[in-house]
Design a protein around this nucleic acid. Structure first.
Length: 711
RNA sequence: GGGCGCUUAGCUCAGUUGGCUAGAGCAACUCGUUUACACCGAGUAGGUCAGAGGUUCAAGUCCUCUAGCGCCCACCA
């Protein structure tokens, strides 16, 4: 027996050494596994973490879950491939970097785009390297030789190809539409990048000629020349559609036109409103229906434009009270309802109020694509774990709007488009990798929404359309990711998978919840309750952390992570260590094929039943139950009962019973290590190495069930 | 306004298609051992499974309602 067993298990001394052993074996690359060609492929694509900081507990959870699945399948004889990656995370990273610039007293608006891009690139690569090291510490058995970064040259090329293809297929169009504009970040955002926050704000009632109109945004009303009501509203029956009225407004007399439109809710306010098509989606739709002109009132920085006359240049929020003051003086304020509750959209990163703006952007037509995804799910080509997420997916696909994929930031994949007379009525555009003939063409300075590239991730990392991996490993098997991505990411991957690859990109979606603190509260820097997985690992060992993340963690629900729980599994590591010590120290080395006596055979039968049950849980994706079962059986059955009752048996003079029991315990240890390996890879491999196993030199690539001994 | 989920021992949570005399970890208490392990062992205590009604031979598990909590979505200005 190795002397190391005389001391408690020391993860700090072990883990790096074991990881290097695995990495040097080359077995993370499934093509190096024995008989790789005959093995059935099993693929997981890692959700590429944003390369802009340290790994957090959520990362540790997904790495653990995916590593468990991959190690399990590898041991089951699959050609198990786990493809790692890193996401440049466009807007996310740029925001992180802008904060850094701000601290240094700099601003991206004072930098050349190229300069900014290069700086963020360096910053991201550094973070990427750091993240990879941290993933290794967590035991990730992914194939680093296949690692991909969303800004790799080939990836960029493919993403642009997709855009061009979609344009040619008439699924992408250039449109002047209302976008969510963040005045601080100076970019448009998709709907999922905004958050609606409930707030109480005043609702103002103004006299508008013969009408009273209600609005929450008086500062947008300067240019309003159309007054709208529902066609069936009897109160306004006498006003005809198209009728013109002269009235006194904020900056003097104007001529307004009556419009009848069904978008108006007669129940709300007075049932009459004026429209500001440039700064409101509903108004925009009404204006389009009736062919009305639109005018920009608020500029890209959130300041009033010349139409506001004396208010020009003022920020909207500071202008508001001034405007109310003027309207009051003119006797145009009817009343103010101070308790008006509504939802206002804000930028999900800086909380700035989103200013709807009309802008030329690239849009993806979603209706037919979403329909395709919906059908695939209806046909059970994709299943969700837990299954209630299928409903959420459905809802999302049934209510999808066209997707704005243009972002006005440098950190991202450039949109391959060219313009002539950009921003004028004579604008022309060409979609192509290369500049069209003629000097007057300028390139699109916008970049793609991150989800446009990450939505294609399973295809991109397997080398769509002609890569070798694409034919072998696509479609992949499981997509394991956070439950918040059920509408941000999962649908887009299914859509691109079907559109480009003609197949769903994965058959199973496994969703995990958040990792919260010990009391179920969300971790945040400001609350000071952040648990760093790397710190925990250094204190208790990676195996302990992995168990703590997995046991009792039902799919789809949040987990409360208590350091005491991790400590408990550190104790378990040591228990396993000492089980090994006992068995190696007290049992004899016996032939593998020895016949067990009746008593021992029945215990072995129990072990086999245990193995079957754990396997069943794994097949059901009940990883939490498999882990708990393993813990319980190993400690409270094997250690507390079987080993205890073995002590006198092994001491007995009867050589046959002692030999049978020795064989039993050694087999049980062997099988226990196999079963625990996906969950606790480091300690199990360390023990395996010290046992100098002859036929299978490495536990990582050993078989899940020791078939020879189960005969 | 719509949707989803949760409510089980002091705390954090399991409980797969209804069969439970309801479990685990941590915490508590009692005793023990230091010859695999004190990062230990044996044991004790602790729950009307949120509440009410229903289906069933049988309900923590299915249905309805009520209360509380959480999350997500939403172009009524």
């Amino acid at each position: 027996m190795d002397d190391a067993f005389l001391k408690p298990y020391n993860p700090a001394e072990t883990e790096q050494r074991i990881y290097e052993l695995w990495e040097q074996s080359g077995m993370f690359n499934p093509d190096n596994l024995p008989d790789a060609e005959t093995r059935k492929p099993y693929t997981i694509v890692m959700p590429p973490p944003n390369a802009n900081g340290d790994l957090h507990a959520g990362h540790a959870l997904f790495i653990t879950l995916e590593d468990i699945l991959i190690r399990y399948k590898r041991m089951q004889g699959y050609r198990a491939l786990w493809i790692p990656g890193a996401d440049h995370a466009g807007f996310e990273t740029q925001v992180v970097y802008e904060k850094k610039l701000e601290k240094e007293g700099r601003s991206r608006f004072k930098m050349q785009p190229k300069e900014l891009y290069d700086e963020i690139y360096a910053f991201t690569l550094e973070n990427k390297k750091n993240m990879e090291e941290q993933m290794r510490k967590l035991g990730a058995s992914c194939d680093w030789s296949r690692e991909k970064f969303t800004l790799d040259g080939d990836i960029v090329q493919r993403v642009q190809d997709t855009f061009i293809k979609m344009y040619e297929d008439n699924l992408v169009y250039r449109g002047k539409r209302t976008v969510n504009w963040c005045p601080k970040h100076q970019t448009s955002l998709s709907d999922v990048e905004t958050v609606g926050m409930e707030e109480t704000a005043p609702l103002y009632y103004f006299k508008y000629g013969p009408f009273t109109i209600a609005t929450a945004r008086p500062e947008t009303k300067f240019g309003d020349k159309y007054v709208v009501m529902h066609p069936d509203d009897v109160r306004y029956k006498k006003w005809k559609h198209g009728q013109q009225i002269n009235l006194e407004w904020i900056n003097g007399p104007i001529t307004a036109t009556v419009i009848k439109d069904e978008a108006i809710d007669p129940e709300f306010g007075t049932g009459v409103m004026t429209i500001t098509p440039w700064h409101d989606v509903t108004d925009f739709e009404i204006a389009k229906r009736h062919n009305l002109p639109f005018e920009q009132i608020i500029d890209w920085r959130g300041k009033l434009m010349p139409v506001a006359k004396e208010f020009e240049g003022m920020k909207i929020l500071s202008a508001r009270p001034e405007i109310i003051k003027k309207l009051t003086e003119k006797g145009l304020v009817v009343k103010i309802d101070e308790q008006y509750q509504h939802v206002a959209k804000r930028c999900y990163k800086c909380n700035t109020f989103i200013e709807p703006q009309v802008k030329d952007q690239w849009f993806v037509k979603m209706a037919s694509l979403a329909q395709m995804a919906l059908e695939a799910v209806n046909e059970k080509q994709v299943r969700f774990i837990p299954d209630n997420y299928e409903k959420i997916f459905r809802y999302w696909m049934e209510n999808t709007l066209d997707w704005n994929i243009s972002r006005q930031i440098v950190w991202g994949i450039p949109i391959p488009a060219w313009f002539k007379n950009r921003g004028t009525d004579k604008e022309e555009s060409v979609v192509s990798h290369t500049r069209p003939e003629g000097d007057e063409w300028e390139s699109d300075t916008d970049t793609f929404d991150t989800w446009f590239s990450s939505g294609q991730w399973p295809l991109l990392v397997t080398g769509y359309p002609d890569g070798k991996d694409y034919t072998t490993y696509y479609p992949t098997d499981v997509m394991e990711t956070g439950n918040d991505l059920i509408f941000k990411w999962i649908p887009r991957m299914i859509i691109f998978g079907l559109y480009l690859g003609k197949k769903v990109p994965f058959h199973t979606v496994y969703l995990h919840g958040l990792v919260n603190d010990a009391h179920g509260k969300k971790m945040s820097k400001s609350k000071g309750n952040v648990i760093s997985p790397i710190t925990i690992t250094e204190k208790y060992g990676t195996d302990a952390l992995r168990m703590a993340l997995v046991v009792g963690n039902t799919p789809g629900t949040n987990l409360s992570l208590n350091p005491d729980k991790v400590k408990g599994y550190k104790h378990f590591s040591n228990k396993l260590w000492n089980i090994t010590r006992f068995i190696l120290e007290r049992t004899q080395e016996v032939d593998d094929d020895i016949i067990l006596n009746e008593k021992d055979a029945s215990i072995w039968e129990e072990m086999r039943a245990h193995t079957t049950e754990v396997t069943k849980h794994m097949e059901n994706f009940s990883i939490h139950l498999a882990a708990e079962k393993l813990y319980h059986f190993t400690w409270h059955r094997l250690a507390d009962e079987i080993i205890e009752e073995s002590k006198p048996i092994l001491e007995e003079n009867n050589a046959d019973t002692a030999r049978s029991r020795s064989a039993l315990l050694r087999r049980m240890l062997d099988q226990t290590l196999r079963l625990l390996h996906p969950f606790m890879p480091f300690i199990t491999e360390e023990i395996w190495q010290k046992m100098k196993h002859k036929k299978e030199p490495m536990l990582m690539s050993a078989q899940w069930i020791n078939t020879m001994e189960t005969e």
